[in-house]
Simulated assay, not measured.
Amino acid sequence: MSKLDNQKISIIGNGEVGSGIGASLIKLNENIMVKGFDTHKEKSEISLKSNSITQLTNNYEECVKDSDIILVATPTSSIYEVFENIKDYLSKNVVIIDTSDTKRAVNQWANEILPEIGIIGINPFKKNQSFENIFWGVVNYDNSNKNTYEVASKLIDDLSGQVINIDIMEHDSFSGLVETIPIILSSALMNLSNDSKSWKEIYRFIGNRFNKFTDSLDNEPINSFSSILTNSDMLLEWIRIYITELLKLEKMLENNSENDIADYIQKNWENKLKIMNNIDPNASQSATDFIPSASENILSLFVGSRAAKFLTKTKPAVETDKYGFKKRV
């Protein structure tokens, strides 16, 4: 039986996150009531048809009245307005859980508008479309207490997730780096390309690599704007660090430092492989033991990773150039 069995849950914001969590909860628990509300009613209608909510509501009051848990899954910049609109309709023991990617602003607004209501922040560390069997960041606010933490933990447990407790400052810093900095860099690349005098010619060169790099711009602009606006100080620090990294590369290029550039590319190719193969840097084993070679990566698509490792190790060593890369000629 689900730990949230017979609970009345309200989801405000029926986009990807709200509907995704709702669908998983309903799938795992037949006795749960999930009411949904979105200022864009068509999103709630889609959520109802896709079994992501069990009841569509038409306003904030109808959505949150008599609820045990309220999940706020809107862009961060909309949460102030949400709190203002629900404050007069909340039961005394309700628990509010927000899924925003920046938490300090939410904490401040909760103190100002809902000082007597228990609220806690969560963030799904999602590597694919599923909200099940993933890590969840849990952030305590000034209004959090033992009950709010237990309710958030039950929700995550129902989704077969794992709780990662994280400080609010660390959360906003790390979330800014992995969620919002890619949006900023994509925007900068798109802007410099589009503003170039040679844009008409550059356009013909655009292919899969450019499109993948700018994938984050596919997000709704309000979500991207919200993530930037509510976390600008943390983002500024990461941008400064990024500029320092670019200056290091600039110096390598100016000096035509072949070995340094080769080492830099090789190191980050390996770092990317670790991420692709879900090698947790917190694991006790040496991560380098699990990094597949390029030939293993390709072969594993056909015969599986274990067999690929065996087969590649039975072949003669590949001749490499002075940088450690496979010789082409």
Rank of each mutant, 00 (worst) to 15 (best):
M1T: 13
K3N: 14
D5K: 13
K8H: 10
L25W: 04
I26L: 11
N29F: 07
M33L: 11
K35V: 04
K35A: 02
D38K: 08
S50W: 06
S52R: 01
L56V: 02
V64A: 04
K65L: 08
I69T: 03
I70S: 13
I79Q: 13
F83P: 05
K87S: 04
D88L: 06
L90G: 09
K92C: 04
A105W: 05
L114C: 08
I117Y: 08
K127H: 06
N128Y: 03
Q129C: 05
S130A: 11
V138F: 05
S144C: 06
N145A: 08
T148E: 10
V151T: 15
G161Y: 12
M169W: 12
D172K: 03
T180H: 13
L189H: 11
M190T: 14
N191M: 09
R209T: 15
F210Q: 14
K212R: 13
D218M: 00
S226T: 10
L229N: 15
L229F: 09
I241G: 04
I243D: 03
K248L: 06
I261Q: 00
K267G: 01
N271P: 05
K274V: 02
K274N: 04
I275R: 08
N278C: 06
D280N: 14
N282W: 13
Q285P: 02
A294W: 13
E296T: 15
N297G: 06
F302N: 07
K313W: 05
K313Y: 00
K315M: 13
D321T: 09
G324M: 02
